[in-house]
């Protein structure tokens, strides 16, 4: 996949353009010349946008912020793959050396009923915030905290918890899933808390409420294809979904309210 010769690239881009949520969109084609293989994918789009503005055409709107792969703002389908061909990578950390001269690149927004397109490649992911609001927290007020070392946490549990908490909330799991399911996102939060003593008091309520919200937002169900895991830039594993399922089963059978 890597372009070894460091040759500058000519590219054919086919990009989804849509001016607002309630208007129909379409693919439009663009040509770009002289792209350095050391550029990031978003820098390539920056160049396209400069050209578009100069030509009087509206630039392509895309979400981005930190451009170092941690904020989870950027994300697009690149040739049918969430965040493009590189693994454990966000779109901002994808570099053009993964493409070849003359390539056609199809760029689409995340597609899910729960993620309506706002403009071009920008989607509304506030459904994720609402899933967290349903129970993705520990109910502790500022000032109520006991001493940090009051609870001993085995290193293995802490590390396992951090594996899940590494989720950046970008939505690639939803985008890559054939069912547009947000189960990996939801599971990451459930799994983060359930491996810590701090998460224990609310574990039953949390998993039921978060799944309920997940479904209400219109995300699909998990059919265990593991595409989410492969697309996840933070390497969150589907084993967290299994943990979520266990938690749900337990909660379903034991919840008292």
């Amino acid at each position: 996949m890597t372009n070894p010769a460091k040759k500058r690239l000519s590219l054919h881009l086919r990009i989804w353009r849509q001016s607002r949520t309630d208007e129909a969109g379409e693919f439009r084609d663009y040509q770009l010349q002289d792209i350095s293989p050391d550029m990031s994918f978003l820098e390539m789009l920056d160049i396209l946008n400069q050209q578009l503005i100069e030509q009087g055409e509206a630039p392509v709107a895309f979400d981005h912020d930190c451009r170092e792969g941690i904020c989870g703002t950027c994300g697009m389908m690149i040739n049918g793959q969430a965040h493009g061909p590189d693994h454990e990578t966000t779109t901002c950390q994808l570099h053009m050396r993964h493409f070849n001269d003359g390539d056609t690149i199809i760029i689409e927004p995340w597609r899910a009923r729960a993620f309506p397109v706002l403009r071009d490649l920008i989607v509304n992911r506030s459904a994720f915030d609402r899933i967290i609001q349903a129970g993705g927290y520990v109910s502790i007020k500022t000032g109520q905290a006991p001493e940090g070392n009051a609870n001993l946490i085995p290193q293995q549990h802490q590390e396992g918890s951090l594996d899940a908490a590494a989720c950046i909330g970008c939505g690639a799991c939803v985008a890559a899933c054939k069912n547009a399911s947000a189960m990996l996102f939801t599971a990451a939060k459930v799994s983060h808390f359930v491996q810590l003593p701090q998460g224990a008091p609310e574990r039953t309520k949390r998993v039921l409420a978060m799944i309920n919200q997940h479904d209400e937002e219109g995300f699909g169900a998990c059919t265990n294809t593991s595409e989410c895991e492969a697309a996840c830039p933070a390497a969150v594993s589907v084993s967290h979904i299994a943990r979520l399922n266990r938690e749900y089963l337990k909660a379903m059978l034991t919840a008292t309210d």
């Binding site: 597609r111 009923r113 547009a180 699909g220 169900a221 294809t225 492969a230």
Partner: peptide, 30 residues
Amino acid sequence: SNVTARFVSYRKKASKRDDRVVASVVAPEA
């Protein structure tokens, strides 16, 4: 409900799993 959840389908869709023995379109889970 899974079909409704996608709403609009992709122009192009490809797997990112590199542990596939067969292409994603013919994989049993698909």
